[in-house]
């Protein structure tokens, strides 16, 4: 858990770069592999927080992978997603929702068009 927190904090937090995100993704996938061998110290069936933590860690690793993949895919800066290597926003390529589908292999990224209603998308200038 500490290793996952460290890599996500260092490489996939506010300011992001392709190199860091690739490293983060590799690291997360490595952790996912070692997660397959996770063991519990608490074998009891009553208020087993150890088990809860282990289950949560599995889900968080899945999410961390998807976060890194999405951030890597989106080669622009938009809202809270800030790529130092792509400082501008790119509506031509990325005015879309990023979706991720679980597969037997690595998850697969695809996009969904944005339905624009009341608020027109525009650059934030403040």
């Amino acid at each position: 858990m500490a290793r996952m927190q460290e890599v996500m904090m260092d490489k996939a937090s506010v300011f992001r770069l392709e190199k860091g995100l690739t490293e983060a993704l590799d690291k997360i996938r490595e952790l996912q592999k070692s997660y397959l061998n996770i063991s519990l110290q608490d074998k009891g069936s009553c208020f087993n927080r150890d088990l809860l933590d282990a289950l949560e860690l599995g889900h968080m690793l899945d999410l961390a992978e998807v976060i890194a993949m999405g951030a890597l895919h989106r080669e622009e800066s938009r809202g809270a997603h800030c790529r130092e290597d792509f400082p501008d926003r790119n509506d031509v390529k990325f005015l879309a929702h990023t979706l991720v589908r679980h597969t037997d292999d690595v998850p697969q990224i695809f996009e969904k068009a944005v339905t624009i209603t009341r608020f027109q998308p525009k650059e934030r200038k403040y």
């Binding site: 519990l40 110290q41 608490d42 009891g44 009553c46 208020f47 087993n48 927080r49 150890d50």
Partner: peptide, 11 residues
């Protein structure tokens, strides 16, 4: 304590 010494401690 729970993370480093004894994962069975419940609270």
């Amino acid at each position: 304590i729970r993370w480093e010494q004894d994962a069975t401690l419940a609270y």
